[in-house]
Write a protein that binds this DNA or RNA. Structure first.
Lengths: 221, 221, 221, 221
DNA sequence: TATTAAACGAGACGGTACGTCGTGTCTTCGA
DNA sequence: TCGAAGACACGACGTACCGTCTCGTTTAATA
């Protein structure tokens, strides 16, 4: 079904190109990144890049995605400790200059390029999200949080936690320009733990409190 | 003090350029935005753009900043309602196509351009942050949250709330690509209310379950 | 007849502008000459330049023309000596850097600008040609050459001599890039003397050896 | 000796560009000539122009030089007839609108650009000069003029004749703005023939005749 | 082992935007 | 009213990158 003949593609070239891309991002930044420069650093012809990636954006997404693949969900025995660990891992990743300069750029580009959006989702977003899902399962097995009841509210809670954790870390590092240290990670973890527990089923349990009803919101104290 | 001679700059041109910039962003996206196109839309020469802004990035930051200037802190009587209102305002802003396509792009560029970073801070970030500060003051006057005690922990809490709120909204809309509706805003607000209240006024106060990292943050109590 | 009101134009400004034009030509060459630079050197606003000259070309023609005004027809007592003197004067003029760089340029521009062509003619060409006419008259008074007989051939000879003398000097200096010294001037003068004498008073009188083309020019005899 | 790799340059592009340059010169004149227009006419990208020529001046010199390459030295059997033929060829060349508008311009530019001066010399001046040298050899073989004696005077005479012929034609057409017809060519040819023959060994050798000796000038009648 | 077809390097190519510069006009203020 | 200062619309400049296209040269599977 597929061509079996001819010279096969070089696997070394792939790795060299991704490495060169990250190296160039560190030195030149997103705006200064050029395909010719990447090719030269990788010791490869421009043609070879375009044979594998359609354009600069897709190349960068893959180069970044490889880094996100290294994220690991630890098991420290408590949800809070697990969250803090992941937050710090994520922060360390965002602190890398190639990520700082390129992550938001490809997300911006993806806002008007559906193909790129899909690639960002599979290469980057889903690789983060699975940590949230995994951490949640572990916490449920430990009994720290109630098990899934299969409602939409459950899925909504996963999404909310994901957006809060990832969003807060991204915002602090890339927008506010502040460092994420253990203290900050603990603070965020604490906020989440109380927020989720305090909700007594909270959001996700999604009952009365959701959807506009906020009769109790804040009035609780 | 400064030169008073020569033909003064046209104030109309400034407004026309910023309008044209937003219009072009809507139609062409960040990647398709060109200075020549903006100039043509504004009925102005390219020179006139470059006389006011050093480059495309700074122009776009100012064009976006003007939108963030329209954010208002309402007074609904409760912190939760105030937060939800602001979250929805912010979400509406991020839903505008010119913001979706360009906000993350300029933040990415700012990661290796200190001047641009400052401009982003004053034109965009600080305009959001003052809402958090104002909302916090109101809630303190209402007695919903304890007054500032002047510690670093207090300032840290403001920063954390800001990063969580803004980060979550940005992440949900731009990264996850989901809509922010009243239900989601209420859920986020609830998470924050419980998270802040549960902490006994203190992030970092995090107790037993926390990883331990709280060297100084939580000392505020 | 003319408006007498308002501030009168500065006569000093005119001289300063022409001086500045020549100075700028020396330093920047024709291609590097800018109106703004001329204005700055003259201590004058660009407006003032454009109030007096319609464009760069006309300004330069006048700036060069002033130099050609200094050409003088001496009276050494013989035609040959007079020619040599004028040739050397002309050569000295063409050796000035502002003339080298700009004379051919304005002539080139004049090829598709009738107004400029007229200005070149009156400011530059006619100022050279009158020397030929004057020298011819003197030589006729001395009896070195026959008096005008009013025929077209007479006028044609004046033109031919003018084109040969001016053209040869211009070509040697600007095209061939060689110097004009007394020996060369004498050689040119000698060629002309023999050429005119040999012709038996007649260009076009050319006999047997000539190609045949003489339909009317030589009819002067 | 040189790199043999990569895609070779298109020879068609070269020809198309030079043609387009002459075409644009005819329609727009020297001042209206733009690289973008030439590229568009040639169906070529601007980059391709700049890959071959450093700037507009060098491009135009080559475009004009190709025309001067077509000059031919005929053999009519007499020096006079040969001169007239060449003069008319040269005049026809200078009458072409692309040459009228651009030749003096590039010569002007060459006055402060040594590289351009060299290019003008090889592409234009030397192509004319070889005709003088060739015509002189033929006339010597015919016995019309004495053979070279190897002195500097001989070389000086070649140069003088060249400057006189080329200079006179250029000056008449471009400066005086008059046409060159057979009659004028014959008159110039006659002047030269007599001037060279009358000199008895001509200029350079010419001593006594110089400076003061002009006893016979015009006295021929 | 020879064939063969794709991968590869090099670099020219058609495009497009960049940011700068010069032109000639205009608008303001002060002399 | 003139002049200085300088903003303005316009348009060309020469550069840089894009992504595509030839070239001639490897290189591994296949026949």
């Amino acid at each position: 079904m597929m061509a079996r003949t001819g010279r096969p593609r070089s696997a070394e070239a792939d790795a060299a190109i991704l490495d060169a891309t990250r190296e160039a991002l560190v030195e030149q930044g997103w705006g200064g990144l050029t395909m010719a420069d990447v090719a030269a650093r990788a010791g490869v012809a421009k043609t070879t890049l375009y044979r594998r990636w359609a354009n600069r954006n897709e190349l960068v997404v893959d180069a970044l995605g490889a880094l996100f693949d290294e994220l690991r969900m630890p098991d420290h025995g408590t949800l809070a400790a697990d969250i803090e660990d992941v937050v710090l891992q994520f922060a360390a990743l965002l602190d890398r200059p190639e990520v700082r300069t390129a992550l938001m750029a490809v997300i911006a580009e993806s806002s008007h390029d559906e193909g790129l959006r899909r690639r960002v989702r599979t290469a980057i977003v889903d690789r983060q999200k699975r940590l949230v899902v995994l951490g949640r399962h572990r916490a449920q097995r430990r009994g720290e949080i109630p098990p899934d009841d299969g409602t939409a509210a459950t899925r909504a809670q996963v999404d909310l936690v994901f957006d809060v954790v990832a969003g807060a870390v991204v915002h602090r590092i890339l927008v506010s320009g502040e460092r994420v240290d253990a203290a900050w990670a603990a603070a965020l973890s604490g906020l989440l733990r109380e927020g989720l527990a305090g909700g007594r089923g909270g959001l996700g349990g999604g009952r009365e409190g959701l959807g506009g009803g906020r009769e109790g919101l804040g009035g609780g104290r």
